[in-house]
């Protein structure tokens, strides 16, 4: 296949992913919604997941399939441009969606977190949808400043960190939600599958402790690249500044946990705050910001 065919193939694969993740989303919705049961003789509603286990398993199968097809889409996109597939915001987004589903599947295999399937499939669907409609750019070669192995390392580390930060945020948000529910009384049945507060708290910490070094590396690789392209390893460009803010926020989170002993709600809020600085950087600075980093192509 030549470049143009590869790019077209990649686009078709993205459309296929949209369909697959849509099915995954519907399946996960059914898993939750159809498990509702009206308890006889009571006005109360209960959830019974055994009834919808098959829907949940279909959801998981679709997530795996979607991940594989997305992997092909991202790879062919890169092949069509003869480079790593993250030269503009469209490509950041599809690669980001890939790491998000990858991180979810990892969490699923290791911690049995199927309940995350609903928000993750929805987030993936939204990311891919905006990518192909709003952010789409034809496949092109890179301008000379972007041709560097450090760029590949920098961006891949940043994208993986981003995917994990998002999962950690989802976990922390779930913690706060479950915490609010448990304040009112015992958990309703539909929430029974969600891990205990303590496991959620531990999980978001472990995710962050795992990616913090990677994020640090992403920033350093970026600095090395900037040094070779612009003659300055750090220039307080808005994108760099926000990457630094995110780094400081997560360092504060780790300190708060390890040295001051924050747990539970306070830690979850801090985690969500740190994650929002990453999202802010990704969305706001990429689209409306200025500076040398604005390669979004919009």
């Amino acid at each position: 296949m030549n470049s143009i065919q590869l790019a077209t193939f990649s686009n078709h694969a993205i459309y296929a992913c949209l369909a697959i993740f849509a099915v995954a989303f519907v399946a996960h919705t059914i898993e939750v919604a159809w498990s509702v049961r009206n308890v006889e003789g009571q006005a109360k509603t209960e959830f019974e997941f055994t009834r919808t286990d098959r829907a949940g398993r279909i959801g998981t199968a679709m997530m795996i399939l979607g991940f594989l097809v997305l992997l092909v889409a991202v790879t062919t996109r890169g092949m069509s441009a003869h480079r790593v597939p993250w030269g503009n915001m469209y490509e950041f987004s599809i690669t980001g969606a890939l790491t998000l589903t990858g991180a979810y599947l990892f969490a699923l295999a290791k911690y049995k977190l199927r309940w995350l399937g609903l928000p993750v499939s929805l987030a993936t669907l939204l990311t891919l949808g905006t990518a192909i409609t709003v952010l789409y750019r034809p496949s092109e070669q890179l301008v000379p400043a972007l041709k560097s192995p450090w760029l590949a390392l920098h961006v891949s580390a940043a994208i993986i960190s981003g995917g994990v930060f998002l999962v950690a945020n989802l976990v922390a948000a779930t913690y706060l939600w479950m915490d609010a529910i448990e304040k009112k009384g015992p958990r309703p049945t539909w929430a029974a599958k969600i891990p205990s507060l303590e496991s959620l708290d531990q999980l978001s910490y472990r995710l962050i402790a795992f990616v913090f070094p990677l994020w640090t590396f992403a920033i350093i690789a970026g600095a090395i690249w900037a040094e070779s392209a612009w003659g300055k390893y750090w220039g307080w460009d808005p994108k760099e500044t926000w990457a630094f803010i995110t780094w400081v926020a997560y360092a504060a989170y780790l300190h708060a946990r390890v040295t001051v002993g924050w747990r539970g709600k306070r830690a979850a809020w801090l985690c969500i705050f740190a994650g929002s600085t990453f999202l802010f950087n990704y969305i706001y600075i990429n689209i409306w910001g200025t500076g040398l980093h604005t390669y979004s192509g919009l």
């Binding site: 926020a249 300190h255 600075i285």
Partner: peptide, 16 residues
């Protein structure tokens, strides 16, 4: 140290 660390993050914002 924790407060200073958070302050540093906040202080970096206006520059962006």
């Amino acid at each position: 140290a924790l407060i200073l660390l958070m302050l540093l993050g906040v202080a970096a914002i206006p520059g962006s």
